[in-house]
Design a protein around this nucleic acid. Sequence first.
DNA 1: CTTGACCTTCCCGGCGCTGGAAGCCCCATA
DNA 2: TATGGGGCTTCCAGCGCCGGGAAGGTCAAG
Lengths: 140, 140
Amino acid sequence: MNIGTAAKRSGVPAKTIRYYESIGLIASAGRSANGYRVYTAEEVETLRFVSHARSLGFPVKDVANLLTLWRDRSRASADVKALARGHIAEIDAKIDELRTIRETLVRLVDRCHGDDRPDCPILESLATSAPASPSPEHHT
Amino acid sequence: MNIGTAAKRSGVPAKTIRYYESIGLIASAGRSANGYRVYTAEEVETLRFVSHARSLGFPVKDVANLLTLWRDRSRASADVKALARGHIAEIDAKIDELRTIRETLVRLVDRCHGDDRPDCPILESLATSAPASPSPEHHT
DNA sequence: CTTGACCTTCCCGGCGCTGGAAGCCCCATA
DNA sequence: TATGGGGCTTCCAGCGCCGGGAAGGTCAAG
């Protein structure tokens, strides 16, 4: 099947499939006579695996490791578990950070009149107070 | 003062200050005879404001708006409040998404032996099941 | 005079794609 | 047979938000 069909069946956009190939996350697809990429059902399976792992927020590098483990019939499930645990830890850290920020913001918003007067604790706080530790990660 | 001092006093790295200048978030700094950027205490204040706003997770574009509002002595606090509320809403969405993912992962991790056997529900789930809705936001 | 810490500009990389341009290929329909 | 509309190919650029590092100018101290 062509890339478009593989995209539909796997849930990974064609552009993204090419990208994954380019960075070596997945193997280069075969080519038909006209130069089109050709995919087997098995490759679509792999793409679905990747798609699922990405949906769970695993970074592409982790997905590469998961793929390796997946294909390694003699793997130890402990390795997979450790990887997943690490990922959970990162998620927890992110949630905590977001919650801290959220609380700060809610406190500020609550103290702001929100009318047509210029008086605003939010701006005052930004101008004077310390940030709501720890510094947030952008690029979530 | 030079950029290094301004960086230390504001908490914004020198590189980032230059970047903010380049994208127009802050005004171009003055220059001394040798071509070095020169900062006033007021500009450092602005940088601190930016730093605080960024720490609360406001995207740079929002920070630009906040700066404008900050400087506008006749602003309506309602505008600031609306901006902050919108930001809280986005944070809530992110937290929800992370929590959903987290729960899925925890469920999987709990079901995984985590020993030297290859049997692993995590990999099985990635290979077969549907993703842990809703699909994570790439590029918020 | 030399060292080393600053400053300048520039461009590249990184995350994970996504959009778009230019150009094939293939099939259906008029 | 021409035409049109999908596909598919490549490559380049950009998103947000910087950080690293090169190549070079500048300055104060020893």
